[in-house]
Simulated scan of single mutants.
Amino acid sequence: MSYTCETAKMESWRAFLTGFLVLCLLSVGSAQSSSPDCSFPAIYNFGDSNSDTGGISAAFLPIQAPYGEAFFHKPAGRDSDGRLIIDFIAEHLKLPYLSAYLNSLGANYRHGANFATGGSTIRKPNETIYEYGISPFYLDMQISQFDQFKARTNDLYQEAKKPSDRINLPRPEEFSKALYTFDIGQNDLSVGFRKLSFDQLRAALPDIINQLASAVQHLYNEGGRTFWIHNTGPFGCLPVQRFYILNPEPGLVDQYGCIKAQNEMAVEFNRQLKERIIKLRAELPKAAITYVDVYAAKYGLISNAKKEGFAEPLKVCCGYHVNYTHVWCGTKLIINGSEVYGPSCSNPSSYISWDGVHYSQAASQWVANHILNGALTDPPTPITQACHRR
Protein backbone atom coordinates (compact mmCIF):
# COMPACT_ATOMS: atom_id res chain seq x y z
CA MET A 1 0.00 0.00 0.00
CA SER A 2 2.79 2.46 0.87
CA TYR A 3 4.34 2.18 -2.60
CA THR A 4 1.00 2.69 -4.34
CA CYS A 5 0.10 5.73 -2.25
CA GLU A 6 3.53 7.29 -2.70
CA THR A 7 3.28 6.77 -6.46
CA ALA A 8 -0.17 8.35 -6.47
CA LYS A 9 1.25 11.49 -4.87
CA MET A 10 2.96 12.26 -8.15
CA GLU A 11 -0.42 12.78 -9.75
CA SER A 12 -2.57 15.85 -9.22
CA TRP A 13 -3.88 16.31 -5.69
CA ARG A 14 -7.43 15.46 -6.76
CA ALA A 15 -6.48 12.32 -8.62
CA PHE A 16 -4.34 11.27 -5.68
CA LEU A 17 -7.16 11.61 -3.20
CA THR A 18 -9.68 9.76 -5.31
CA GLY A 19 -7.26 6.98 -6.15
CA PHE A 20 -6.02 6.74 -2.59
CA LEU A 21 -9.54 6.38 -1.25
CA VAL A 22 -10.46 3.68 -3.72
CA LEU A 23 -7.23 1.77 -3.11
CA CYS A 24 -7.51 1.90 0.64
CA LEU A 25 -11.17 0.93 0.71
CA LEU A 26 -10.32 -2.14 -1.36
CA SER A 27 -7.59 -3.12 1.05
CA VAL A 28 -9.26 -2.61 4.40
CA GLY A 29 -8.40 -6.13 5.40
CA SER A 30 -4.68 -5.54 4.98
CA ALA A 31 -4.86 -2.70 7.52
CA GLN A 32 -6.00 -5.08 10.21
CA SER A 33 -3.45 -6.34 12.68
CA SER A 34 -3.08 -9.32 14.94
CA SER A 35 -2.27 -6.97 17.83
CA PRO A 36 -4.69 -7.05 20.74
CA ASP A 37 -7.23 -4.28 21.13
CA CYS A 38 -6.18 -1.38 23.33
CA SER A 39 -9.28 -1.17 25.54
CA PHE A 40 -9.03 2.58 25.98
CA PRO A 41 -10.59 3.61 29.31
CA ALA A 42 -11.18 7.21 28.18
CA ILE A 43 -11.04 9.74 25.34
CA TYR A 44 -9.79 13.30 25.67
CA ASN A 45 -10.70 15.37 22.63
CA PHE A 46 -9.46 18.76 21.42
CA GLY A 47 -10.96 20.62 18.49
CA ASP A 48 -13.54 22.94 17.00
CA SER A 49 -17.22 22.62 16.03
CA ASN A 50 -16.50 19.46 14.06
CA SER A 51 -16.12 17.64 17.39
CA ASP A 52 -17.77 19.99 19.93
CA THR A 53 -20.33 18.07 22.01
CA GLY A 54 -21.56 21.05 24.01
CA GLY A 55 -18.69 23.36 24.87
CA ILE A 56 -19.73 26.43 22.92
CA SER A 57 -23.34 25.99 24.04
CA ALA A 58 -22.24 25.88 27.68
CA ALA A 59 -19.98 28.90 27.32
CA PHE A 60 -22.34 31.15 25.37
CA LEU A 61 -25.81 30.75 23.88
CA PRO A 62 -27.08 27.18 23.52
CA ILE A 63 -27.50 25.73 20.05
CA GLN A 64 -31.17 25.78 19.09
CA ALA A 65 -33.55 23.41 17.33
CA PRO A 66 -33.63 21.83 14.78
CA TYR A 67 -30.04 20.91 15.65
CA GLY A 68 -29.94 17.44 17.16
CA GLU A 69 -33.32 16.38 15.81
CA ALA A 70 -32.20 13.22 13.98
CA PHE A 71 -30.75 11.36 16.95
CA PHE A 72 -31.07 13.20 20.24
CA HIS A 73 -34.51 14.59 19.27
CA LYS A 74 -33.50 17.92 20.81
CA PRO A 75 -30.49 20.25 20.66
CA ALA A 76 -27.50 18.44 22.15
CA GLY A 77 -24.71 21.01 21.86
CA ARG A 78 -23.65 19.69 18.47
CA ASP A 79 -23.58 21.57 15.17
CA SER A 80 -25.39 18.80 13.34
CA ASP A 81 -28.73 17.05 13.15
CA GLY A 82 -27.25 14.28 15.29
CA ARG A 83 -23.96 12.61 16.11
CA LEU A 84 -20.49 13.76 15.11
CA ILE A 85 -17.42 11.74 14.17
CA ILE A 86 -16.23 11.93 17.81
CA ASP A 87 -19.52 10.33 18.87
CA PHE A 88 -18.99 7.46 16.44
CA ILE A 89 -15.45 7.07 17.77
CA ALA A 90 -16.85 6.73 21.29
CA GLU A 91 -19.44 4.21 20.11
CA HIS A 92 -16.78 2.20 18.27
CA LEU A 93 -14.65 2.04 21.41
CA LYS A 94 -17.72 1.15 23.50
CA LEU A 95 -17.39 4.31 25.57
CA PRO A 96 -20.06 6.89 26.51
CA TYR A 97 -20.44 10.10 24.52
CA LEU A 98 -18.06 12.74 25.79
CA SER A 99 -19.30 15.45 28.13
CA ALA A 100 -18.01 18.92 27.31
CA TYR A 101 -15.47 20.20 29.83
CA LEU A 102 -17.44 23.44 30.12
CA ASN A 103 -20.69 21.71 31.08
CA SER A 104 -21.76 22.65 34.60
CA LEU A 105 -24.66 20.20 34.90
CA GLY A 106 -25.19 16.56 34.01
CA ALA A 107 -21.56 15.89 33.09
CA ASN A 108 -19.86 12.53 33.56
CA TYR A 109 -16.08 12.50 33.14
CA ARG A 110 -15.44 8.90 34.16
CA HIS A 111 -14.43 7.98 30.61
CA GLY A 112 -12.98 11.24 29.35
CA ALA A 113 -13.83 14.82 28.53
CA ASN A 114 -14.24 17.01 25.47
CA PHE A 115 -12.36 20.30 25.33
CA ALA A 116 -13.41 21.12 21.75
CA THR A 117 -15.50 24.24 21.25
CA GLY A 118 -17.05 25.67 18.12
CA GLY A 119 -15.01 28.36 16.38
CA SER A 120 -11.72 27.32 17.97
CA THR A 121 -8.41 27.78 16.21
CA ILE A 122 -4.95 26.36 16.75
CA ARG A 123 -3.33 29.77 17.00
CA LYS A 124 -4.25 32.29 19.66
CA PRO A 125 -7.03 34.57 18.35
CA ASN A 126 -5.30 37.87 19.06
CA GLU A 127 -2.22 37.04 17.03
CA THR A 128 -1.60 39.16 13.92
CA ILE A 129 -3.08 36.62 11.53
CA TYR A 130 -6.51 36.91 13.14
CA GLU A 131 -6.96 40.53 14.27
CA TYR A 132 -10.07 39.37 16.06
CA GLY A 133 -10.98 36.06 17.62
CA ILE A 134 -13.75 33.71 16.60
CA SER A 135 -13.45 31.82 19.87
CA PRO A 136 -11.46 32.37 23.06
CA PHE A 137 -10.95 28.61 23.39
CA TYR A 138 -8.00 28.21 21.06
CA LEU A 139 -5.90 25.05 21.33
CA ASP A 140 -3.48 26.20 24.03
CA MET A 141 -6.47 27.24 26.14
CA GLN A 142 -7.97 23.78 25.69
CA ILE A 143 -4.66 22.24 26.77
CA SER A 144 -4.63 24.48 29.85
CA GLN A 145 -8.16 23.37 30.63
CA PHE A 146 -7.01 19.76 30.37
CA ASP A 147 -4.15 20.43 32.80
CA GLN A 148 -6.60 21.92 35.27
CA PHE A 149 -9.04 19.08 34.73
CA LYS A 150 -6.38 16.46 35.34
CA ALA A 151 -5.05 18.12 38.49
CA ARG A 152 -8.47 18.86 39.94
CA THR A 153 -9.95 15.43 39.28
CA ASN A 154 -6.86 13.81 40.80
CA ASP A 155 -7.36 15.90 43.97
CA LEU A 156 -11.04 15.02 44.13
CA TYR A 157 -10.28 11.34 43.56
CA GLN A 158 -7.76 11.28 46.40
CA GLU A 159 -10.05 13.23 48.73
CA ALA A 160 -13.06 10.98 48.10
CA LYS A 161 -14.10 9.13 51.24
CA LYS A 162 -16.32 6.54 49.59
CA PRO A 163 -16.54 4.90 46.14
CA SER A 164 -19.73 6.74 45.24
CA ASP A 165 -17.83 10.04 45.45
CA ARG A 166 -15.64 8.87 42.58
CA ILE A 167 -18.33 7.55 40.27
CA ASN A 168 -18.08 10.39 37.72
CA LEU A 169 -14.32 10.91 38.02
CA PRO A 170 -11.53 9.46 35.85
CA ARG A 171 -9.03 7.25 37.59
CA PRO A 172 -5.62 8.96 37.83
CA GLU A 173 -3.74 5.96 36.44
CA GLU A 174 -5.92 5.91 33.31
CA PHE A 175 -4.73 9.20 31.83
CA SER A 176 -1.69 7.43 30.38
CA LYS A 177 -3.91 4.72 28.87
CA ALA A 178 -6.45 7.09 27.31
CA LEU A 179 -6.88 8.03 23.66
CA TYR A 180 -6.11 11.70 22.83
CA THR A 181 -7.91 12.92 19.72
CA PHE A 182 -7.51 16.13 17.71
CA ASP A 183 -9.78 17.64 15.06
CA ILE A 184 -8.76 21.26 14.64
CA GLY A 185 -7.32 23.60 12.00
CA GLN A 186 -10.32 24.34 9.80
CA ASN A 187 -10.91 27.72 11.44
CA ASP A 188 -7.26 28.71 11.04
CA LEU A 189 -7.79 28.31 7.31
CA SER A 190 -11.19 30.03 7.45
CA VAL A 191 -9.85 33.17 9.11
CA GLY A 192 -6.76 33.06 6.94
CA PHE A 193 -8.83 33.05 3.75
CA ARG A 194 -10.74 36.10 4.99
CA LYS A 195 -7.84 38.14 6.33
CA LEU A 196 -4.74 37.12 4.39
CA SER A 197 -3.52 36.61 0.88
CA PHE A 198 -2.87 33.02 -0.17
CA ASP A 199 0.88 33.63 0.04
CA GLN A 200 0.56 35.02 3.56
CA LEU A 201 -1.55 32.10 4.70
CA ARG A 202 0.82 29.60 3.15
CA ALA A 203 3.70 31.27 4.99
CA ALA A 204 1.79 30.96 8.27
CA LEU A 205 1.16 27.22 7.95
CA PRO A 206 4.43 26.01 9.53
CA ASP A 207 3.77 28.01 12.70
CA ILE A 208 0.18 26.75 12.90
CA ILE A 209 1.35 23.15 12.48
CA ASN A 210 4.12 23.59 15.06
CA GLN A 211 1.65 24.88 17.63
CA LEU A 212 -0.44 21.75 17.16
CA ALA A 213 2.71 19.67 17.55
CA SER A 214 3.54 21.55 20.76
CA ALA A 215 0.14 20.61 22.18
CA VAL A 216 0.84 16.95 21.46
CA GLN A 217 4.27 17.25 23.09
CA HIS A 218 2.71 18.81 26.18
CA LEU A 219 0.18 16.00 26.55
CA TYR A 220 2.99 13.49 26.08
CA ASN A 221 4.90 15.12 28.93
CA GLU A 222 1.73 14.80 31.00
CA GLY A 223 1.71 11.07 30.36
CA GLY A 224 -0.39 10.79 27.20
CA ARG A 225 0.81 8.06 24.87
CA THR A 226 -1.82 7.47 22.17
CA PHE A 227 -2.77 10.25 19.75
CA TRP A 228 -5.33 10.13 16.92
CA ILE A 229 -4.94 13.30 14.83
CA HIS A 230 -7.37 14.26 12.07
CA ASN A 231 -6.17 16.39 9.20
CA THR A 232 -8.43 19.15 7.90
CA GLY A 233 -11.21 18.47 5.40
CA PRO A 234 -11.81 19.86 1.89
CA PHE A 235 -12.56 23.43 2.97
CA GLY A 236 -13.47 24.51 -0.55
CA CYS A 237 -16.30 21.97 -0.60
CA LEU A 238 -18.22 23.57 2.28
CA PRO A 239 -21.43 24.92 0.71
CA VAL A 240 -21.06 28.19 2.62
CA GLN A 241 -18.03 28.97 0.48
CA ARG A 242 -20.31 29.09 -2.57
CA PHE A 243 -23.18 31.10 -1.07
CA TYR A 244 -21.77 34.33 -2.43
CA ILE A 245 -20.39 32.95 -5.69
CA LEU A 246 -23.37 32.24 -7.92
CA ASN A 247 -21.53 32.41 -11.23
CA PRO A 248 -17.94 31.27 -10.69
CA GLU A 249 -15.28 32.24 -13.17
CA PRO A 250 -13.80 29.44 -15.30
CA GLY A 251 -11.27 27.40 -13.34
CA LEU A 252 -12.43 28.62 -9.91
CA VAL A 253 -14.25 25.43 -8.99
CA ASP A 254 -13.78 21.75 -9.72
CA GLN A 255 -16.33 19.36 -11.24
CA TYR A 256 -18.12 18.99 -7.90
CA GLY A 257 -18.41 22.75 -7.32
CA CYS A 258 -15.59 22.95 -4.74
CA ILE A 259 -13.29 25.97 -4.76
CA LYS A 260 -9.99 24.62 -6.05
CA ALA A 261 -7.56 27.07 -4.46
CA GLN A 262 -9.04 26.59 -0.99
CA ASN A 263 -8.84 22.83 -1.27
CA GLU A 264 -5.25 23.10 -2.46
CA MET A 265 -4.41 25.11 0.66
CA ALA A 266 -6.07 22.47 2.82
CA VAL A 267 -4.00 19.80 1.05
CA GLU A 268 -0.84 21.78 1.77
CA PHE A 269 -1.85 22.13 5.44
CA ASN A 270 -2.31 18.37 5.57
CA ARG A 271 1.00 17.66 3.85
CA GLN A 272 2.86 19.73 6.42
CA LEU A 273 0.86 18.19 9.26
CA LYS A 274 1.76 14.68 8.16
CA GLU A 275 5.45 15.58 7.88
CA ARG A 276 5.38 17.11 11.37
CA ILE A 277 3.72 14.01 12.80
CA ILE A 278 6.48 11.86 11.32
CA LYS A 279 9.01 14.04 13.17
CA LEU A 280 6.94 13.84 16.35
CA ARG A 281 7.21 10.07 16.31
CA ALA A 282 11.00 10.41 16.52
CA GLU A 283 10.79 13.11 19.19
CA LEU A 284 8.29 11.20 21.34
CA PRO A 285 9.57 7.60 21.20
CA LYS A 286 6.99 6.17 23.61
CA ALA A 287 4.03 7.67 21.72
CA ALA A 288 1.76 6.00 19.19
CA ILE A 289 0.65 8.78 16.84
CA THR A 290 -1.87 8.16 14.06
CA TYR A 291 -2.42 10.61 11.21
CA VAL A 292 -6.02 10.34 10.00
CA ASP A 293 -6.82 11.39 6.44
CA VAL A 294 -10.27 12.84 6.97
CA TYR A 295 -9.76 14.91 3.82
CA ALA A 296 -9.60 11.79 1.65
CA ALA A 297 -12.72 10.38 3.29
CA LYS A 298 -14.75 13.57 2.96
CA TYR A 299 -13.65 14.32 -0.58
CA GLY A 300 -14.29 10.69 -1.49
CA LEU A 301 -17.84 11.05 -0.22
CA ILE A 302 -18.37 14.35 -2.02
CA SER A 303 -17.01 13.02 -5.31
CA ASN A 304 -19.24 9.93 -5.10
CA ALA A 305 -22.27 11.47 -3.42
CA LYS A 306 -24.96 10.06 -5.68
CA LYS A 307 -23.42 6.59 -5.75
CA GLU A 308 -23.41 6.61 -1.96
CA GLY A 309 -27.07 7.61 -1.77
CA PHE A 310 -26.63 11.31 -0.99
CA ALA A 311 -27.99 14.42 -2.68
CA GLU A 312 -25.86 16.87 -4.63
CA PRO A 313 -22.84 17.45 -2.36
CA LEU A 314 -23.27 21.23 -2.10
CA LYS A 315 -26.97 21.12 -1.27
CA VAL A 316 -27.79 22.19 2.29
CA CYS A 317 -30.39 20.47 4.46
CA CYS A 318 -31.10 23.16 7.06
CA GLY A 319 -31.47 26.80 6.12
CA TYR A 320 -32.83 28.97 3.32
CA HIS A 321 -30.25 30.14 0.78
CA VAL A 322 -31.67 31.58 -2.43
CA ASN A 323 -29.56 33.91 -4.54
CA TYR A 324 -28.08 36.29 -1.96
CA THR A 325 -30.78 35.80 0.67
CA HIS A 326 -29.58 33.68 3.57
CA VAL A 327 -31.63 32.48 6.51
CA TRP A 328 -29.43 30.27 8.64
CA CYS A 329 -30.51 26.99 10.14
CA GLY A 330 -32.90 27.46 13.05
CA THR A 331 -33.33 31.22 12.54
CA LYS A 332 -35.90 33.42 10.82
CA LEU A 333 -35.80 36.60 8.79
CA ILE A 334 -38.39 39.13 7.64
CA ILE A 335 -38.32 39.29 3.84
CA ASN A 336 -40.81 41.56 2.04
CA GLY A 337 -42.97 41.66 5.15
CA SER A 338 -43.10 37.89 5.59
CA GLU A 339 -41.22 35.65 7.98
CA VAL A 340 -38.88 33.21 6.29
CA TYR A 341 -37.50 30.38 8.42
CA GLY A 342 -34.34 28.37 8.06
CA PRO A 343 -36.00 24.95 8.40
CA SER A 344 -34.49 21.52 8.05
CA CYS A 345 -35.16 19.28 5.08
CA SER A 346 -37.50 16.31 5.25
CA ASN A 347 -34.72 13.73 4.92
CA PRO A 348 -31.43 14.89 6.51
CA SER A 349 -29.85 11.46 6.04
CA SER A 350 -29.69 12.06 2.29
CA TYR A 351 -27.60 15.24 2.68
CA ILE A 352 -23.87 15.60 3.18
CA SER A 353 -24.10 19.16 4.50
CA TRP A 354 -26.39 19.88 7.41
CA ASP A 355 -26.23 23.69 7.57
CA GLY A 356 -23.70 24.77 4.95
CA VAL A 357 -20.75 24.56 7.34
CA HIS A 358 -21.17 21.31 9.24
CA TYR A 359 -21.75 17.76 8.09
CA SER A 360 -24.95 15.82 8.66
CA GLN A 361 -25.03 12.87 11.00
CA ALA A 362 -25.30 10.51 8.02
CA ALA A 363 -22.20 12.02 6.40
CA SER A 364 -20.26 11.93 9.67
CA GLN A 365 -21.15 8.28 10.08
CA TRP A 366 -20.01 7.54 6.53
CA VAL A 367 -16.67 9.26 7.20
CA ALA A 368 -16.27 7.49 10.53
CA ASN A 369 -16.87 4.13 8.89
CA HIS A 370 -14.05 4.85 6.43
CA ILE A 371 -11.41 6.00 8.94
CA LEU A 372 -11.91 3.91 12.06
CA ASN A 373 -10.78 0.68 10.39
CA GLY A 374 -7.38 2.16 9.55
CA ALA A 375 -7.91 2.26 5.79
CA LEU A 376 -7.18 6.00 5.63
CA THR A 377 -4.65 6.36 8.42
CA ASP A 378 -0.88 6.45 8.70
CA PRO A 379 0.10 3.96 9.97
CA PRO A 380 -2.84 1.89 8.63
CA THR A 381 -4.04 0.89 12.08
CA PRO A 382 -7.65 0.48 13.26
CA ILE A 383 -8.50 2.87 16.08
CA THR A 384 -9.04 -0.06 18.43
CA GLN A 385 -5.32 -0.86 18.06
CA ALA A 386 -3.99 2.68 17.85
CA CYS A 387 -2.03 2.33 21.11
CA HIS A 388 0.52 0.07 19.42
CA ARG A 389 3.55 1.83 17.97
CA ARG A 390 4.25 0.90 14.36
Rank of each mutant, 00 (worst) to 15 (best):
Y97P: 09
P313D: 06
L102P: 03
R225K: 12
L284C: 01
A368S: 12
A266I: 01
S57H: 07
T381C: 07
Y97R: 14
I129L: 13
I134W: 08
C317G: 05
Y320T: 15
E264G: 06
W228P: 07
Y256S: 13
I208D: 04
P250I: 07
Q241R: 15
L93N: 08
K161W: 06
S99T: 03
G319P: 00
G82Y: 00
N45L: 05
D165G: 06
Y180F: 10
L212D: 07
C387P: 07
S349F: 01
D147A: 15
S33Y: 02
N304P: 02
S104C: 12
I289M: 07
K162W: 12
L201H: 08
I383G: 02
P382V: 06
G54C: 03
T53V: 05
T331Y: 09
C318G: 00
I302Y: 07
P125E: 06
T181W: 00
P206Y: 03
A368F: 00
E159M: 12
Q145D: 15
A368K: 05
Y256N: 15
V253W: 03
K315A: 12
C318N: 02
D355K: 00
V216F: 03
C5N: 13
A116D: 02
T18F: 14
F175C: 10
P239I: 00
G251K: 08
G68Y: 07
V22L: 14
W13P: 13
H358A: 02
Q145E: 11
N45K: 01
S353N: 01
Q186M: 14
P125W: 04
P170N: 06
N231F: 00
Y67V: 04
P250D: 07
D355W: 00
Q142R: 08
Y299E: 09
F46N: 05
V340Q: 10
D79A: 15
L84W: 04
K94H: 13
T384W: 03
G77N: 03
A203C: 02
W228H: 11
W328G: 11
T153R: 00
S120D: 05
D207E: 14
T384C: 03
V240W: 05
L17Q: 14
L219D: 02
L280G: 05
A287M: 01
G19F: 11
N369T: 11
D199C: 02
R194L: 13
H321R: 11
H73N: 12
F175H: 09
S34V: 13
K298W: 10
N126W: 12
P136G: 04
E11V: 14
R78C: 04
R281D: 08
Y109I: 02
T331N: 09
S144H: 11
L201E: 02
S30K: 10
P379C: 06
C38G: 09
